[in-house]
């Protein structure tokens, strides 16, 4: 899958559109898991919605095309026909596991009815028994008791809901799954099982690729093949996970990695400082490089000129410092007090 030049905006009443995703290109090679991380509010969920072809007003995908499974799909949602055009792909070709999804689900619906509804929406002939079979198989992969099928959403714990949503969003065996924070409420053992289920579905070629959105960088470094780091609506660095973690080329990536708290004796005794300053407003982003007000390496061109995407083989980065220091890891050490 390759999505090119995607731009998605929230249309505001004031007339000033907020471009939450700005000219983003992202590739998911066959059989790979691509991680998407970045600042809270930088546009990850918005990008997920655009890629899953479910952008709904006030969100509009105003540019972008997706190549998947030999087909090219126009991702824009400005025309009336786009909804009909996109419908056949939703859920079956691309499926989104939304952030915080389970809480939007009707409290009067049992999980089993929900499972059936999801499958029946795509295949009217599916029987309840078939739907239950598939759901219970997946639940077993996650060591979840099948009793949850008889329960209502509010009767499940946070992590149980989260795993249930994963089961539901993979029921139609999508080719590309976009999982938005699928593990943020899970303990590590449940996380591991969920990840193993995704890997197994890739191995069995039920799914052909996954975009995994999370703030949990240790989880990303464990499961993903590639990582894309987003800041203020743009992807700023993109490469093989190992390369990114060991040789971050963008100062924002480096700062983010530095703020990770591993459970070690060292963490216990150090005082880690977050990146100074606040995340920028997307309605009114900083000029030049959007990270410049917070970047310890900022130079004069950073303020005036937007850095181009440098292609360093298997690794892309948009940064003036990186351009002047080819191949060098960002020398940003953990700020401790």
């Amino acid at each position: 899958m390759r999505a090119s030049n995607v731009t998605a905006v929230y249309a505001a009443d004031s007339g000033q559109d907020v471009p939450a995703v700005d000219n983003v290109t992202l590739e998911v090679p066959e059989g790979q898991i691509v991680g998407l991380a970045g600042e809270s509010g930088c546009g990850k969920t918005t990008l997920g919605n655009a890629l899953a072809l479910i952008a709904n007003p006030p969100l509009y995908t105003i540019a972008g095309s997706m190549e998947i499974d030999g087909q090219v799909i126009d991702m824009t949602t400005l025309s009336r026909e786009s909804n009909n055009l996109h419908r056949p792909y939703r859920g079956a070709t691309v499926s989104l596991l939304p952030q915080g999804a389970m809480n939007a689900i009707s409290p009067t619906l049992r999980i089993r009815d929900l499972v059936h509804d999801v499958m029946a929406a795509h295949d009217k002939n599916v029987t309840k028994a078939e739907a239950m079979d598939r759901a219970s198989d997946r639940l077993k992969m996650l060591s979840m008791p099948t009793r949850v099928l008889d329960q209502y959403a509010h009767q499940l714990s946070g992590g149980m809901k989260q795993r249930m949503v994963t089961v539901i969003s993979t029921l139609l065996d999508p080719k590309l799954l976009i999982a938005d924070e699928p593990t943020s409420a899970l303990d590590v053992s449940s996380q591991k099982q969920l990840i193993e289920m995704l890997l197994q579905m890739i191995e069995m070629r039920i799914m052909r690729g996954v975009i995994f959105i999370t703030h949990d960088l240790p989880v990303l470094s464990m499961v993903t093949d590639r990582l894309a780091i987003m800041y203020a609506g743009k992807i700023v660095e993109n490469g093989r996970t190992e390369d990114l973690v060991h040789t971050a080329r963008h100062p924002y990536t480096a700062a983010l990695l530095n703020a990770v708290l591993d459970p070690t004796e060292e963490t216990r005794h150090k005082h880690v400082l977050g990146i100074p300053g606040s995340p920028p407003s997307l309605a009114n982003p900083p000029s030049g490089c959007r990270f410049h007000p917070r970047c310890p390496f900022a130079m004069s061109e950073c303020v005036t000129k937007e850095p181009a995407f440098l292609d360093e083989g298997n690794h892309q980065v948009a940064c003036w410092w990186a351009e002047k220091n080819p191949g060098v890891r960002v020398p940003l050490e953990v700020t401790t007090v």
Partner: peptide, 17 residues
Amino acid sequence: DEATSMLDASLRVSALN
């Protein structure tokens, strides 16, 4: 209760501080 689960690493450490 899991109050920082959806924060990026930098905001998370700031909130903990």
